[in-house]
Simulated scan of single mutants.
Amino acid sequence: MKKILNFVIKVSSLLSYLYDRVLAFFYKASMKHCGKGVYIRPSSSDFKGLWNMSIGDYTSIPKGSVFFCTEAELRIGKKVIFGPHPTIITGDHRIDVVGKYIMDSHEKLPENDAPVVIEDDVWTGANVTILKGVTIGRGSVIAAGAVVTKSCPPYSIVGGVPAKVLKMRFTSGEIKEHERMLYGKTKS
């Protein structure tokens, strides 16, 4: 009986994997830009605004991701890795309309939406939320459970609710050496 159950589980996993591969082809083609080697799991994620989403080479986006970017761009750099269940939202609802329920206030103002930029070589832990108008600097680490409402500098380690810079990954000398080794020169 265990052999049959294990076989059914393996077949189910294979079917899920194949379904995601087919769906990923169409999702990637619908994006503003999708680099090579990008890993996504669209059947178990919720992506809104694919036309406004750009993802760089070799980025990995796990199942359970929620990315909403209908009115403002979401740009994710190269070699970015997400822990389980990330949420990125580039917009808000209006909350200032007198005489209407929030749900019924469909007209947006420019300040209700702002792009999110995640630069290259970023790692976000499990259950991270990144909200409108945030830029996460290259090489940063976002701690599990963080709610990021403000931009953070390159090579920072960020955590908390709301998130704040906890410390830097490297000293300024180590950053220069790191970038020389990765990019062949010092990036600005």
Rank of each mutant, 00 (worst) to 15 (best):
G139L: 09
R180Y: 08
D104K: 05
A144E: 06
Y101V: 07
D120N: 10
T124W: 09
T90Q: 07
K32N: 11
G83R: 03
R75S: 13
S140F: 13
G139V: 08
R180V: 00
S30D: 13
N52S: 10
V141S: 06
M31R: 00
D20Y: 01
V134P: 04
V128G: 04
I136M: 12
K10L: 14
V122P: 03
E73N: 11
D104Y: 08
F26R: 10
I9L: 14
K78I: 01
G37W: 02
A29Q: 13
R21N: 14
R41D: 07
D120M: 01
A72R: 03
G64P: 01
F68V: 09
V134W: 07
P153A: 06
F67L: 11
I118L: 09
M168L: 05
T135H: 13
V11G: 05
G160T: 13
F26S: 12
G64Y: 02
A114Q: 14
P42E: 04
G64E: 04
K79I: 00
G37F: 02
I40R: 02
R94K: 15
S140P: 13
Y58D: 11
M1D: 13
S65P: 01
D46E: 14
K79A: 07
V80M: 06
L74A: 03
I81N: 11
S172Y: 03
L15K: 10
V116F: 09
L14H: 14
K185A: 12
I175T: 00
Y155M: 03
Y58C: 05
T149N: 08
S60N: 11
S156Q: 04
W51N: 09
Y183F: 15
G133T: 07
S156W: 04
P162W: 01
C152G: 04
K100V: 07
I157V: 15
E111V: 11
F82P: 03
I136K: 06
S13M: 15
Y19R: 12
